[in-house]
Amino acid sequence: MEQILSFIAAKANYWAYVILLMVGLYAMIVKNNLVKKIVGMVIFQTAVILFYVSIGYKTGGTIPIIIYGDGHNSIIEPAAKAVDYINPLPHVLMLTAIVVGVATLGVALALAIKVYQEYGTLEEDEINKKIRA
């Protein structure tokens, strides 16, 4: 039982990332509504963020802000040990990824508005019908 629990604990994040990724992908492929697809896209992107952040986690580590000595300008080095801190690199990367996500969201919504102004609907099949007509 404990083994199973520890196994779940060790992999759950990765499972969750796969599930979210697939949820997003499913929405982007299958859904008919454009905004729904955009929502799927957001989920899709965050799944990858989850993956990266999970890479960085270290059991027993603290957040990657060095506990420094007194006075913020003086550099007193009780040299920080790598083991004590969570891996900061994925966090940096994911900040960028979140920003990209927001940017993409904005552009996608702008495009969705344009599409709606053109066709009066957001459903892809209806739009296709209108294009053919």
């Binding site: 982007m28 697809k37 899709f44 992107q45 993409t104 495009l111 599409v115 066709y119």
Partner: peptide, 17 residues
């Protein structure tokens, strides 16, 4: 053209994927 937003949106989805 007036069809381009839709095309671009699809491009955006696949490009993002």
């Amino acid at each position: 053209s007036n069809r381009s937003p839709l095309a671009t949106l699809n491009y955006l989805f696949l490009g993002t994927i």
